[in-house]
Write a protein that binds this DNA or RNA. Structure first.
Lengths: 118, 118
DNA sequence: CAGCATCCCCACTGATACTG
DNA sequence: CAGTATCAGTGGGGATGCTG
């Protein structure tokens, strides 16, 4: 996300921080605990290394996550949520909940349609 | 937003529903009560009529908002949040809260920097 | 394994003009 | 006033290969 230099609206600011396609999924995974890039890549189906690292970097810049790096081989880095990240996760959690409701309703409709009840 | 036809992840589904640049602001305004397009346009600084109507249409499609239209002149239409929309608003509200915190912290840093304390 | 650089496409956005 | 159509710019995202 290209961030603007001046935000007058707090909602636009936060929205831009998590607009990226994979950001909610990354936060969702990190909520489970600190995680390395390779582990994240495994758990988020379809994400490329480039997009993962790009989004991680953007989240770092906004103070939503932080990382710990151990220099020397083998390389090992862990990303984890900051307090700000945990707060944003609450919003992500609601989004997840709404999504589940929608998918259940859709399935219910499909079910009813299959039975000729809709 | 170009919606996919198949969502296996509820989080991706909801995220795509509100990724549009102006969607959170529209929901924020509608939370205050039903509103006409022209009134929304006035209250959302910088939005064009095209983007407003486009996003309203997308939100309608996803069942986040609904509208009432009175045919005949002068034309009068009101958009309002559905139950689903009100639930998503809760997430938007958290985003707003996080944004306010960030802006306050930034101002605080600017303040301290001005005083030579940072 | 973590991270960066390049190239390319297309979806999102915006400006403008038009219709009922 | 609500809603649609067209055109053009841009930046987000994907594929791929390279480096420490």
């Amino acid at each position: 996300m290209k961030m603007r230099s001046d935000y007058t609206c707090p909602l636009e600011l936060t929205h831009d921080m998590i607009r990226g396609k994979w950001k909610p999924l990354i936060l969702w995974q990190l909520k489970k605990g600190a995680c390395s890039p390779s582990a994240l890549k495994k758990s988020i189906r379809g994400i490329s290394q480039k997009m993962l690292l790009q989004h991680l970097h953007e989240l770092l810049t906004c103070g939503v996550i932080k990382k710990t790096s151990s220099y020397g081989y083998p390389l090992k880095t862990d990303y984890f949520l900051t307090e700000r990240g945990k707060k944003i996760y609450e919003a992500v959690s609601i989004m997840q909940s709404v999504g589940i409701d929608m998918m259940l309703e859709d399935n219910r409709e499909d079910f009813l349609r299959d039975k000729g009840l809709l």
